[in-house]
């Protein structure tokens, strides 16, 4: 598929990872393009979606139902096969909440090496604000034979052990300030759940994920993003960065920004995130607003 070469994206490191609502409206129905909606609410797609879009739910489609992990290659192939997606198709992912869950789905697709995956800049809200069409009609696509590709966690996924080895290199905590300081274990407005301790991983800088989004849900321009992540949080291109949040969804959004918009080559998402770290025995935790120093090894 042709890239969206609109001038707005040219300043990003990988402009081909974004498409505008205009571009999508023009290409809807094109051969080789599959549009995927991924939301926080499992029913939001059913209330009306972009015509022809299919749905991927982070809970019921991407998580293994037994092990706390993502699905394996076989289940992923079954999912994409059922949705009628080919290995060479261009995927455009969009969703609610400034593409928070869409970025998460895109990051999981990356683990399976699907090559051409893009985000719809501004997501579902921008499409609706522009009064573009939505439908409740079920999308019927002929099933495909998507290949079984083994998931490769080595490049963009970090585990607890990786974080313990990482001290001294930058960590980004993308949760809200109250979660970071340890007053809450979940975002304001969200149910308290799952972590036994509150606070943050020592040395992590707090850069709430939504700072990267403009008011209309689109990504901020490159200069603004550099001011936030480079001047503000002290990151430099070439850094080995690990981002985390509560379960790895919000940090997927930040992973997308650092990797695809700013061109950082070594960014990993720690999807175990606070629900794992905050319940782990004997890992170091800092409370309060300061990042804290590198912990001495036990």
């Amino acid at each position: 598929m042709a890239d969206d070469d609109g001038a707005r994206f040219a300043e990003y490191a990988h402009p081909e990872r974004l498409v505008s609502t205009d571009w999508l409206a023009e290409h809807l129905g094109d051969e080789g393009l599959v549009v995927i909606e991924s939301d926080e609410d499992v029913l939001l797609y059913e209330t009306g979606h972009i015509p022809g879009a299919v749905k991927v739910d982070w809970h019921t489609d991407l998580n293994d139902p037994v092990t706390r992990d993502y699905v394996d290659g076989e289940s992923f192939a079954a999912l994409f096969g059922r949705l009628g997606i080919g290995r060479d198709d261009t995927l455009v992912v969009y969703g609610d909440k400034s593409n928070w869950w869409a970025a998460y789905a895109l990051w999981v697709f990356t683990l399976f090496g699907h090559r051409d995956v893009r985000l719809l800049d501004g997501g579902r809200a921008k499409w609706i604000a522009e009064e573009r069409p939505l439908t409740r009609d079920a999308t019927e696509r002929p099933a495909t034979d998507y290949p079984v590709v083994e998931r490769d966690d080595s490049g963009v996924r970090a585990f607890r052990e990786d974080v313990l080895e990482h001290f001294g290199s930058p960590l980004i905590d993308v949760r809200s300030p109250l979660e970071y300081s340890g007053e809450r274990t979940t975002a304001p407005e969200y149910p308290e759940e799952s972590a036994l301790r509150a606070g943050h991983i020592p040395t992590a800088q707090n850069v709430p994920w939504a700072k990267a989004a403009a008011e209309d849900g689109t990504f901020k321009g490159r200069a603004d993003l550099e001011a936030i992540y480079q001047d503000g949080a002290g990151l430099a291109p070439g850094d080995d960065v690990i981002a985390y949040c509560r379960i790895g969804e919000r940090s997927s959004h930040t992973w997308f920004v650092l990797t695809h918009l700013l061109g950082y080559e070594k960014v990993r998402n720690y999807d175990g995130s606070w629900t794992e770290w905050g319940s782990s025995v004997r890992v170091p935790i800092v409370r309060g607003e300061q990042p804290g120093g590198v912990p001495s090894r036990a």
Binding site: D41, V42, L43, L44, E46, T47, D96
Partner: peptide, 9 residues
Amino acid sequence: PAEAPTTRG
């Protein structure tokens, strides 16, 4: 809110 259909359901 309308954006939370599961909860509305």
